[in-house]
Design a protein around this nucleic acid. Structure first.
Lengths: 226, 226
DNA sequence: CTCAATTTATACTTTACAGTACAGTCTAAT
DNA sequence: ATTAGACTGTACTGTAAAGTATAAATTGAG
């Protein structure tokens, strides 16, 4: 019943540079992170990519395939080395406090550079439908961060700067001390924070203080007291 | 086209005892917690409650209304006093270690007695659609627990058992030290854990040790060392 | 017993979206 | 210039689920 079957196919073979697949994934990532799997349909993803819905099907075959590719795309686009490579380069004689500070800094960069808050929400929401996404989240996200930190701790133990039986546990403890303030309040609450959280600087400072209060080796008789 | 329009309405006016509304909420809670908002339709909720779908509409009007009522029902069914009333009764001379242990215990009971893992997942998943549920979760769940704990800490400070400038921060720190192991791994991963977490006993013991290492007042010259 | 409230079964409307089909059109490579 | 392949617009199917309407049936209360 439509008057004109004319004027279709304004573009064929994407002009140049990026493939349409990339454009789709970029749009899909933004939309999925912002509104969740069920909150977005392929129409909108196509629109966001400046592409027809049919093209999305041509390239990926199904919505779930788009989602899966988007996750891979997300992890691939993170240059982990940039974020915490220098953790490994910790000089032997460096201050434990400085090392911990650097790790905390790596966490911050990781969180802000990689949409971790929205991504965490997505993982939790969809891990029932797609069990692998929780595992990938750990394998590609948290695990490398943790591993790097454990290595740091072990180095400090070797250097007799720290006394610690279980470096893995200690690493988790430090993480917990920070995430409780930085990550979870934001994951739980959309929009403005519900609770008053102290400024990041204080959180980190206090986490380090507590951590060292437990694991620092006392080089003299007086206990660690700031 | 159906042969018989006979034999309908097997029951009218629920026999006795609980109203059908309660049965619906109980079923809804189980299903929503297990499969999320979108994962369940009212047909199944009605079925789980042994009630017709129409009755669900008669009683609640819409799916979202069922969900909202289910959340209220959940919080109403938690007897907070049972879980951590004795925190307030901490005897003046009691050991800080014992008090912390009791708080950790309260967390455990809270988590296991109230489906907190599944519920947390639900809150995170649906707080975009329903922003109030995140706030309610904090107001009715975490906040009371935290408040009670802060009071404990302040009491210990008065008794000169602890030295602490910011009891609220300290409470969060202790929480973080425990939740990192007990809550979040389970929230992130459906099914078997991905990472090896130490047994709860160890986690709590180490959290207390670290907490006291930072905030315990030293009554003699020797530093706290187990 | 009778009545009114309540419940049920069934059938219907509406909406939303995944996925498919296809014909027409543009561009790049040969 | 021709052609192959990528892309588009449009229209279609199928399905799932929310929500509505209604007549029949049941039961408790008076």
């Amino acid at each position: 019943m439509k008057a004109s079957t004319v004027s279709s196919a304004r573009r064929a073979r994407r002009p140049s540079g990026k493939s349409s697949a990339d454009a789709i994934l970029i749009g899909a990532k933004r939309l999925f992170l912002a509104e969740g799997y069920d909150g977005v349909n392929l129409e909108r993803i196509a629109e966001a990519a400046g592409v027809s819905r049919q093209t999305v099907y041509n390239q990926f075959g199904s919505k779930e395939a788009v989602f899966r590719s988007m996750i891979e795309f997300h992890w691939a686009s993170i240059n982990r080395d940039d974020i915490f490579s220098n953790l490994h380069k910790a000089r032997v004689l460096e201050n434990p406090k400085a090392i911990l500070n650097r790790f905390a800094d790596a966490i911050f960069r990781f969180v802000s550079d990689t949409d971790q808050i929205a991504f965490t929400r997505l993982v939790i929401s969809e891990s029932r439908r797609l069990p692998w996404i929780g595992q990938e989240f750990y394998r590609l996200g948290k695990q490398p961060l943790l591993r790097a930190f454990v290595v740091c701790i072990e180095k400090m133990i070797e250097d007799r700067q720290l006394s610690c039986q279980n470096p893995e546990l200690a690493a988790h403890q430090f993480l917990g001390l920070i995430q409780e303030f930085i990550i979870w309040p934001r994951v739980m609450a959309i929009g403005p924070a519900i609770l008053e959280i102290p400024p990041d600087k204080v959180v980190i400072e206090e986490a380090i203080r507590m951590f060292l209060g437990r694991y620092r080796v006392d080089r003299d008789i007086t206990p660690f007291r700031p």
